[in-house]
């Protein structure tokens, strides 16, 4: 499908939810990559296990790098900008004033708030080499 303004040659982080076992390796890989810490709570990706334990009902929630993103619209200082080579919306720390508007504006809950640095955090596709996809043992996350 051709979407106007979108580079179709870029890779996408694809999620195959029926393969996911909610092992949460992706969360830990994400935390290690971004804050050098094994805590899953500040990770940019969330693997949510199905409470009713039905097969193939585990869900991975990760930033979809929307075309018309609510976070970008909400940011008053243009601190969220699209990286042309990866297609990801990247949070630029030096421009951010920490008002928290993007966190409330994202309708999917993919903008997270880091209570340590008082700044929002979001998936930036690790600059073109997403660690979550690398460490997913079930290939539920594939960067292709």
């Amino acid at each position: 499908m051709k979407v106007e303004g979108l580079n179709t040659n870029i890779k996408l982080l694809n999620v195959y939810p029926y393969r996911c076992t909610a092992c949460r390796n992706c969360e830990i890989a994400c935390s290690f990559r971004h804050i050098k810490n094994g805590m899953p709570s500040p990770s940019r990706i969330n693997a949510i296990s199905d409470e009713q334990k039905r097969q193939g009902k585990n869900i991975i929630v990760v930033c979809m790098q929307c075309d018309k993103a609510a976070c970008v619209k909400a940011c008053p200082v243009n601190a969220l900008q699209r990286n042309e080579s990866t297609g990801a919306i990247v949070h630029i720390e030096s421009r951010c004033i920490g008002c928290g508007s993007c966190v409330q504006a994202c309708p999917f809950g993919n903008m997270k708030w880091d209570f340590v640095s008082s700044r929002p955090v979001k998936c930036d596709l690790c600059g073109g080499d997403p660690m979550c996809a690398k460490f997913c043992p079930e290939k539920a996350l594939v960067y292709e």
Binding site: I59, V61, A70, A74, P76, S101, A105, N110
Partner: peptide, 28 residues
């Protein structure tokens, strides 16, 4: 924020953790 984004004001009265869970429910 509502004035800035043209979203209804009530859209913002939900925390990011609950939003993630709601998204997961929709996906399921």
């Amino acid at each position: 924020l509502a004035k800035r984004t043209n979203f209804p004001e009530t859209d913002f009265y939900i925390c990011e953790k609950c939003k993630t869970k709601e998204t997961a429910k929709v996906y399921a």
